[in-house]
Amino acid sequence: MYEVRLPYMSRLTLAAAVAAALIPLAACGSSDSSSDEAWTFTDDLGTKISLDAAPKRIVAQSSVAAALTDLGLGDRIVGTFGPLKNPDGEPDVQAEGLDQSKVKDVTGSGDYGDVDVEKLAGLRPDIVITSTYIEPQLWYVNEASEAKIKKRYDIAAISFQDKTLPQIFDGTERLAAALGADTSGFSEGRDAFGQAAERLQSVYEAQGDPSIVAVSPAADVLYVSSPDANPDLKYYRDTLKLNIVSPKKPDDGGYFESLSWEKADQYDADVAIWDARGGSAALKGLEAQPVWNKTKAGRDKAYVAWNSVAAPSAAGYARIIESFADGLEKVAQ
C-alpha cells in the first residue's frame, strides 16, 4: 500500500491554517444590498447582472440554496430546483440545512435540468442562482430551460471548475455578501470546516493511511472519480494528504474514468467511498459485482458513503467531512 504521511501538525495549527485559507473575497462589483438602490453583480461566468434593487426573492438550485441558507439568507429562498430527496426518500445531503417546508420545488418533469418555468414565474423571483462544474453548463438547468428562464430572469452562477474548496467557498460568500448577508457570521462555518478537516486527517492517520478509491456504480459501468477534477477529492489528497486513487484515463471533462464491470478491479484500494446519490441500491449493486469483489475494499466490505455533491459553503462541507470521518472510523471497527 502506498502511504503518504503528513508532517505532524497540532489540532490548533491545522485548524488555523485551514481557516486562514478560507478568508472570503470582498463582495466587489455590487451595490449596498441593504438599500433600494440599483444592484449590480458580476458572477463567476463573467455575466453582469443589473437590477433596480437587491434581490429579495431567490430561486436557487438546491445545494446552492442550502449554502445561502448556511450564510444567513434562508429567508430569501422562495423556490428550488434539483434534488431535495435521495432515492431512499430521505432529505438529500446536498440540501441539508434548507427548510424544505418553506420553499416550492420548481423542478420540471422532463429530462435532467428541466425547470418548470411557469411554476418558477409564479414565485416572482428577482434572480435565479445555480452553479457550474464545467463552464458554461449550468447545474440542473438544461439548455432549453436556460433559454426560457433568461427571457424573464437573470441567472447568476457560482463556478466550481478548476477551483479548490476554499475558492468555491469564497465564490459563494462573495455572492452572499452582495445579496446582503451578514459577513461577520461567515467565520463560524469556516471554523467548523477547519475543525472537521483536522478530525478527518487524524482519523485517517489512525487507520494507517489507507488508500481510497472514489466510485460511482451505474447499471453498465463503474465510474472512478478523479481527485484532479473533483474539488473535494483534490482537497483530501493535496491538503489533508489522503491517498486518493487517480484514474489513469479520465473521460472528457476529467471528472471520472468509465470502466466496464469486467474491469472493475482495475484500481485496487483499501477503502471505497461510494457515491451516495444513488442511495442504498447503488451500494447493493456494487457489492453484487464479482469482479469488483476482487478488490481489497470489496473483499473487506470497506465502504464509506461519499456525498460527492454538497452545499458549496464552508458549513456545508464541514458536515460532509464530519460524516466522512465517521464512516472511516466505522470501517476500522
Score class of each variant (00 low, 15 high):
residue 3 E to Y: 09
residue 5 R to K: 15
residue 7 P to D: 11
residue 9 M to N: 01
residue 10 S to V: 08
residue 10 S to G: 15
residue 12 L to A: 15
residue 13 T to K: 12
residue 14 L to N: 00
residue 18 V to W: 00
residue 20 A to R: 04
residue 22 L to W: 09
residue 25 L to H: 13
residue 25 L to W: 08
residue 26 A to W: 06
residue 34 S to P: 00
residue 35 S to N: 01
residue 37 E to W: 01
residue 42 T to C: 01
residue 43 D to N: 06
residue 46 G to N: 13
residue 46 G to K: 08
residue 48 K to E: 11
residue 49 I to W: 09
residue 55 P to E: 13
residue 63 S to G: 03
residue 64 V to C: 12
residue 67 A to K: 08
residue 67 A to V: 12
residue 69 T to R: 09
residue 71 L to W: 12
residue 75 D to L: 10
residue 75 D to K: 14
residue 75 D to F: 07
residue 76 R to N: 14
residue 78 V to C: 13
residue 81 F to H: 08
residue 82 G to N: 12
residue 86 N to Y: 09
residue 88 D to R: 13
residue 90 E to G: 05
residue 93 V to C: 02
residue 96 E to P: 00
residue 97 G to H: 06
residue 103 V to S: 07
residue 104 K to P: 00
residue 104 K to T: 15
residue 105 D to L: 10
residue 120 L to M: 14
residue 124 R to K: 15
residue 124 R to W: 07
residue 130 T to Y: 07
residue 132 T to W: 09
residue 138 L to V: 11
residue 139 W to E: 14
residue 148 K to N: 07
residue 148 K to Q: 15
residue 149 I to L: 14
residue 150 K to D: 10
residue 154 D to E: 13
residue 154 D to F: 12
residue 155 I to C: 05
residue 156 A to G: 07
residue 160 F to V: 08
residue 166 P to E: 02
residue 166 P to C: 03
residue 167 Q to S: 10
residue 168 I to H: 07
residue 174 R to P: 04
residue 177 A to T: 11
residue 178 A to R: 05
residue 181 A to C: 11
residue 188 E to H: 10
residue 191 D to L: 13
residue 191 D to W: 12
residue 193 F to C: 03
residue 195 Q to I: 11
residue 198 E to Y: 11
residue 202 S to M: 13
residue 204 Y to W: 12
residue 208 G to R: 04
residue 210 P to Q: 04
residue 214 A to G: 03
residue 216 S to L: 04
residue 224 V to L: 08
residue 226 S to W: 11
residue 226 S to I: 00
residue 227 P to K: 03
residue 228 D to P: 01
residue 234 K to L: 10
residue 238 D to Q: 10
residue 240 L to E: 00
residue 245 V to T: 05
residue 248 K to Q: 13
residue 251 D to M: 08
residue 253 G to T: 00
residue 256 F to H: 13
residue 256 F to P: 00
residue 258 S to P: 08
residue 265 D to T: 04
residue 280 S to N: 11
residue 284 K to N: 15
residue 289 Q to I: 07
residue 290 P to K: 10
residue 307 N to P: 02
residue 311 A to E: 06
residue 317 Y to I: 01
residue 318 A to T: 05
residue 321 I to V: 15
residue 321 I to W: 02
residue 323 S to K: 09
residue 323 S to R: 12
residue 326 D to N: 12
residue 326 D to W: 03
